[in-house]
Design a protein around this nucleic acid. Sequence first.
DNA 1: CACGTTCTACGACACATGTCGTAGGCTAAA
DNA 2: TTTAGCCTACGACATGTGTCGTAGAACGTG
Lengths: 128, 128
Amino acid sequence: MASPRLSKLELQIMEALWNAGACSIREIHEAFPKRGRPAYTTVQTMVYRLEAKQAVRRTKKISNAHIFEAAITRDAAQRRLIDELLGLFGGRTQPVMAHLIESGKLTLEDIKAAEKALRQLSDKERPQ
Amino acid sequence: MASPRLSKLELQIMEALWNAGACSIREIHEAFPKRGRPAYTTVQTMVYRLEAKQAVRRTKKISNAHIFEAAITRDAAQRRLIDELLGLFGGRTQPVMAHLIESGKLTLEDIKAAEKALRQLSDKERPQ
DNA sequence: CACGTTCTACGACACATGTCGTAGGCTAAA
DNA sequence: TTTAGCCTACGACATGTGTCGTAGAACGTG
């Protein structure tokens, strides 16, 4: 059930599939920036491994090429990443927030948006 | 310079050193919860590897046992974790925040504290 | 149909991580 | 001083990840 653990490269491949929809290996390969693009067979190997993890599946065949599509959502995969990070932090969000702020990546708008989202969520769940 | 990449188990060992200060392998080993505690030599191997990564160093010897201490700060290590996560998210904090909220781990207090921290930081930096 | 191009399906290898066993040195207590 | 017990140093192995090469099948064009 739970979305499988995905490595950095695997995520980049999933990203291509999430962005472009069903793709051939060739298309996924070409979605990588020319600079530092891995070999075609490297991408192929990773797609096969993603298939073994059931993160992608073959949908059809065009000519002699297989077409793959994501079998897990971007949301599920991202949630997994966050859960793992939180695991490393002992489940405490406070240090995570602190470092996000310190890294200068978090703006006041982000915070505002987060607060709004949180309020909406609690408004929705509290009444239960 | 940059703090090295640390795995989950390595982080647990660093945690012991950050919490208790300089420690012997034995002490680090015993800092693990009895349930699921790795073998003594497993901890030893990881400490040696952390030493190779210059994340810990030997400070002295008590009797025939080496005493180790952290050579990088918890903050630096945690910042590294966040940076890597952000890297996986293409540097965008928005989805990170969204998932933190959705996971239900983020409270309104966390947000408030974050906002406060952020204001203090910008008050300090803007005037430059 | 023949041939160059493209894909697939594997196999391989290096490095990182987690896991441990063992050999032998050192310590401390009897 | 003998010896049980702890510690070190090292080797080993499995799994996961990133990397790629090659052999041969399949396709499409002239």
